[in-house]
Design a protein around this nucleic acid. Structure first.
Length: 471
RNA sequence: GUCCCCAUCGUCUAGCCAGGCCUAGGACACCGGCCUUUCACGCCGGCGACGCGGGUUCGAAUCCCGCUGGGGACGCCA
């Protein structure tokens, strides 16, 4: 293991993990795996009012489903409070931080005034030099330098300069004694020995503040790489309205983790013209230098196409383990079905090339797994008509007599009927399809018969005939 | 408003750093055709972009400046 690389994914547990977060996690994971370094998960839960245990579990479950394994953690920042307090005290002792007694209301009012005047809203430094220490609620602010520039070196964008005058004295500890993000992120990254901070570019403007903190704490700064964000179709930040659905929702919609990962890796990263990457290939080729810095729009159609590719190329038995929960979810199978993976995998070869999601696949597999066939009413009235009955009867009879029950034999047999009757193949295939599957859409008709087996096929054909007679 | 980032087909991107090989390549989507027992798959073809204006240069998608546009940040959120 390469000790010189250690990266982290640091989600805040204030909701589910969405696509944007997954991509940040993925890039960190790939960076660690490519360099043989370590990937750690750290839960940024310092906002007590919004963090939930449920979110933490959902985030971790998402990571596991996606196969993004971590080497250390998950650490929780709240468990490191003593350390954070110690560092705050250290800053206080060195006169690099100070208590501020301004109330939120006061601050709010000043902010409004500044905005009215067209100024950048900033703390005015009121408590920066006050010498009294009243026994009143207060926050701790970092005593930022007043002038100069901070140069942040970004691995993807080069040097970015910020005017210190744009910054103000940020709060590092709240009134309730808990530390704030910009402060803990510095302390934790430094303590944990994080070497590269790869995160969304919404953090780029926080970086000068953090850089200043690193400097005044005498910590070496890590390297920074700010990747672009993923935008919704309207080109605004991903939100609940967009594709910012929970990662686990994609699982429910029938997406494969590999497809999602593959889709996401190509958002902002490329390796020539290659579109499909195995994990090994991604790890092998992943490189910060082939990352684009412009924002990417989330495109569900391409994700769906990739999903279809993965459904087609994943071995049936392997696909079965993802397919089974979807079959249950879609009500095709009962939770207590007791079927072995081999049995679940049976219809997959016939369904894979016509399914974009596992949900579609489950619907297509209904005829195979159900005991009682459910008919599509339109299909029934259109194809199960009196003139179809004799044909269906002949198919049933012929199948009964078929010694060699193979796809080829079935084909030869069905074609012989078509020839004898002097009809088009579709005239026979469609009613048969409806009789066997209840739908007008299904795998190839020989495959359907083969899949169902002789007895079930004959039984369904017969009951279709019986139904026609009741007309 | 201030600061920061970004800018190639509708979308993801290659090309840009080391200017000519670019009448700009690939992929998704879309359109047309072929295949065909349904739906698909697949195959073939088509549509479609260097935001604008200045420079630098023999030559610019590529370098520089400005503009415009988009995004982000400006929380006792992360």
């Amino acid at each position: 293991m390469n000790d010189s690389v250690k990266v982290r994914f640091a989600p805040s547990p204030t909701g589910f993990l969405h696509i944007g977060g997954v991509r940040t996690a993925l890039f960190n994971w790939l960076y660690a795996r490519h360099h043989g370094g370590k990937f750690v998960i750290r839960i940024e839960d310092t906002d007590l009012s919004r963090s939930t245990e449920e979110s933490i579990q959902e985030i971790l479950e998402s990571m596991r489903w996606l196969g993004l394994d971590w080497d250390e953690g998950p650490f929780r920042q709240m468990e490191r409070q003593d350390r954070h307090k110690e560092v705050v005290q250290h800053l206080l002792d060195q006169d690099k931080a100070y208590p501020c007694f301004c109330t939120p209301e006061e601050l709010e009012e000043r902010k409004k005034e500044q905005q009215k005047k067209g100024e950048k809203p900033k703390y005015n430094g009121k408590c920066r030099n006050r010498s009294d220490r009243p026994d009143a609620p207060h926050v701790i602010r970092f005593k930022s330098p007043l002038e100069g520039t901070v140069r942040v070196h970004d691995l993807l964008r080069g040097n970015v300069d910020f005017d210190i005058a744009e910054l103000d004295d940020l709060i590092i500890q709240r009134t309730d004694g808990t530390p704030t993000y910009n402060f803990v992120v510095v302390v934790d990254d430094a303590d944990m020995g994080i070497t590269q901070v790869i995160r969304g570019d919404d953090h780029l403007s926080n970086t000068p503040r953090q850089a200043l903190l690193y400097d005044s704490l005498d910590y070496p700064r890590p390297q920074f790489a700010h990747i672009s964000m993923i935008l919704g179709e309207d080109k605004t930040r991903l939100s609940k309205r967009h594709g910012a659905t929970s990662t686990l929702a994609y699982r429910e919609m029938g997406y494969l983790p590999d497809a999602l990962i593959n889709y996401l890796v190509r958002l902002g990263w490329s390796h020539g013209d290659q579109e499909i990457f195995s994990r090994e290939e991604m790890i092998k080729h992943f490189d910060l230098s082939s990352i684009t810095t412009s924002a990417a729009v989330f495109n569900p159609e391409k994700l769906q196409w990739l999903n279809a590719q993965y459904i087609k190329s994943t071995p049936p038995l392997e696909l079965a383990q993802h397919f089974e929960p979807i079959l249950v979810q879609e009500g095709v199978l009962k939770e207590s079905h007791g079927l072995r993976p081999e049995e679940i995998a049976k219809p997959i070869p016939y369904l894979a090339e016509r399914s974009k999601t596992l949900v579609e696949m489950a619907q297509g597999a209904e005829f195979y797994f159900c005991d009682e066939l459910v008919f599509d009413e339109k299909a029934k009235t259109k194809f199960l008509k009196p003139e179809a009955a004799p044909l269906l009867g002949k198919v049933a009879e012929g199948l009964q007599a078929l010694a060699d029950f193979s796809s080829e034999a079935i084909e030869t047999f069905l074609k012989s009927i078509v020839e004898a009757e002097g009809i088009k193949f579709g005239k026979l295939a469609q009613p048969t399809r409806v009789a066997l599957t209840g739908k007008t859409v299904s795998p190839g008709i020989y495959d359907v018969i083969l899949l169902l087996g002789k007895d079930r096929s004959i039984q369904r054909l017969r009951s279709a005939c019986e139904w026609i007679e009741t007309l």
